[in-house]
Amino acid sequence: MPVQKIRVRFRMNGQEHEQEIPSNITLLELIRDELGLTGTKEGCEIGECGACTVLLDGKPVYACLILAPKVDGREVITIEGIGEEGKLHPLQEAFLTHGAVQCGFCTPGMLLSAKALLDKNSHPSREEIEEAISGNLCRCTGYLQIVNAIEAIRSGEKE
């Protein structure tokens, strides 16, 4: 049986998209392969590593576990959608300042999990930060620098 093509309309990073896509691809493939936005990383492909984390209607989800046709009528934010051209998002700045980026593979997902947390809770506790990023694996930093970076944003620290 041939793969059915589905027409989906959705908003990504503030832009409207209308696209014909195969019924059986993932949101991750839609983002990376169909739209060419490769900031969202492909890691385990089974919803365990968090590298593909994006925001769907403001909530962090694993793009590798979302069937792409499900985005119809919804809003997606990827790492390309935070910050502005030539100006980093405060979280990105904090990650750099605190040495929270080493190999960088977990970073886009980690930033989006952190953004989702701060969007709904501007003063999270350290425990809340740890829980918010517990679905994102990092094999370099040991997490400490990442938690410190997010905590710095919380307390309004700039440097």
Binding site: N24, T26, E45, I46, G47, Y62, L65, L67, P69, K70
Partner: peptide, 26 residues
Amino acid sequence: VIAGGTDLMTEIREGKLEAELLVDIT
């Protein structure tokens, strides 16, 4: 039937889902 799909997506990826029609109830 597919709802969230967190379990079904791995079946789809591995080619183990044998259905003509996927009914998304969300």
